[in-house]
Amino acid sequence: MRALFSTEGLHPRNAFRQWRDMLCTQMVPNEIRNLAAAPFHGRIEFTAIGSLPITRSVQSSTRTEVTPEAVRRNGRGDRLYAVFTESGHHAVQQNEREAVARTGDFVVLDHRPGVSEIETGSVLILDLPRERLESVLGPSQLFTTLTVGTNLASTTLANTYIRELIRVGDRLTPDAATRMASIGVDLMVASLAERLVQEVPRSIQGNATVQRAKAYIDDHLGDTTLDPPQLAAAVGVSLRRLQELFQERGRHISDYIWGRRLELAAKRLSDPACAHLSIGMLAYGCGFSSQAHFARRFKDRHGISPSEYRQAHRWNVQMVAATSKLPFESA
C-alpha cells in the first residue's frame, strides 16, 4: 500500500492537529477528537485493486463524529464502507444501532450521521458501491452497523482474502485485479448474509425468499419471458407476497430484473472476452427482446449508448495497459 500521510517526524504538539486537518481536508470533513493519553501517532496508507479503493488507518485512539452538515457536504450517498478491524477495538453508533468490532471483525457503515471510536490500532476501510450490496441484501438499513464477527467462518475467509489481495494486488493485471476485487466483495456479501440470518425470525423468512428470488433471476437473466408472475411461481409464493417483500426492501420486482440485466450487459460490454459479440447478440443474451429496447434502457441508466460504453472501456483498458509500462520514480 502507498503511504499518504504519517505523523512520524512531526512535533508531538502538532501531530494530532495535522492529522485531523489532513483527514478533514483530503478525505471527509468530520469532527475528530484525540483520546490518546500518550503523544498521538497516525499513518494513512492507500491502494486501489480494480475498482475497489482500500485505505488503512494505523492510529492512536480517536473519537469521530459524522455530523449532518458533513453528510450534506460530502454527498457520497451512493457509497458504503466496510471497516475491518486489524487490531485494537472499534465502536460505532449509527442508524439507531451500536456495534463493537474487535480484531478480525468488520462492520459496514453508510454515510449518515454517527459516532465512531477507534482504540489504538489499525483498521482497513473498503469503499463499496451501495447498489452492489443492496442488490443482494436489500436496503442498507438491514445490514449496516451490525458486527460481523470472526465466529462466522465466512468472516474469517473474507478477512484473510482481503489481506492477501492487498499483499499481491500490485502483481495483478488490471483485468485480474477487477475480477479478484469482485470476489472479495462477494465474500463480504456472503458474510453479511450469514450475519443477517441471526436477526428477527420474520426478517429471516422474508430475506430467504428474496434471496431465492434473486438467485433465480440471476440464473435466468437470458430468458426474455422472465417476469414477476413467473418468478413468484418459481420460488413458491404468491405474486402479491413477493411484491410486498421487494417493496419492503425499496425495490420493485420488474425494476430489479431490468437492473440486473443492465448490470450483466455493462459487464459484458466491458469484458474483452465478449468483444466479438455484436450489440444485438449481447442484448438478446441478457434478456432483452430487441436491440432498440436495450439501447433505450441502457442509455437511460448510463447516459451513453451501449457502443459508446464499450468503446470507452476499451480505451480505458488500453490506457491502463500503456500506463503500466511507463517507468515511475519511487515516492
Results as ranks from 00 to 15, higher is better:
T7K: 07
G9F: 07
H11Y: 07
P12T: 08
N30P: 12
R33W: 12
A36Q: 12
E45S: 14
S51A: 11
I54D: 00
R56C: 02
S60N: 04
E69L: 03
G75T: 08
R79S: 13
T85A: 06
S87F: 03
G88Q: 02
H89W: 09
A99K: 01
A99T: 15
D105L: 06
D105N: 06
V108T: 15
D110P: 00
G114L: 01
G114C: 01
V115C: 04
E117Y: 09
T120P: 05
V123T: 10
P129I: 04
P129V: 07
E134H: 03
S135E: 10
V136F: 04
V136E: 10
F143L: 03
T144L: 01
T145W: 02
N151V: 10
N151C: 10
Y161F: 09
Y161V: 05
E164G: 05
L165W: 01
G169H: 03
L172G: 01
A176N: 12
S182L: 09
S191Y: 06
Q198M: 06
V200D: 14
S203I: 02
A208R: 15
T209L: 12
V210T: 13
Q211D: 06
L221N: 06
L221R: 04
L226V: 03
D227T: 15
P228E: 04
G236D: 07
R241E: 02
L242K: 13
L242W: 11
Q247G: 09
Q247E: 15
R251G: 00
H252F: 08
L262K: 07
L264H: 10
A265V: 10
K267Y: 14
A273T: 09
A273Y: 10
A275E: 08
H276N: 14
M281N: 15
S289D: 12
R296V: 07
R301C: 00
Y309N: 04
R310I: 01
N316C: 13
A321K: 12
K325T: 11
K325L: 13
K325R: 13
S330H: 14
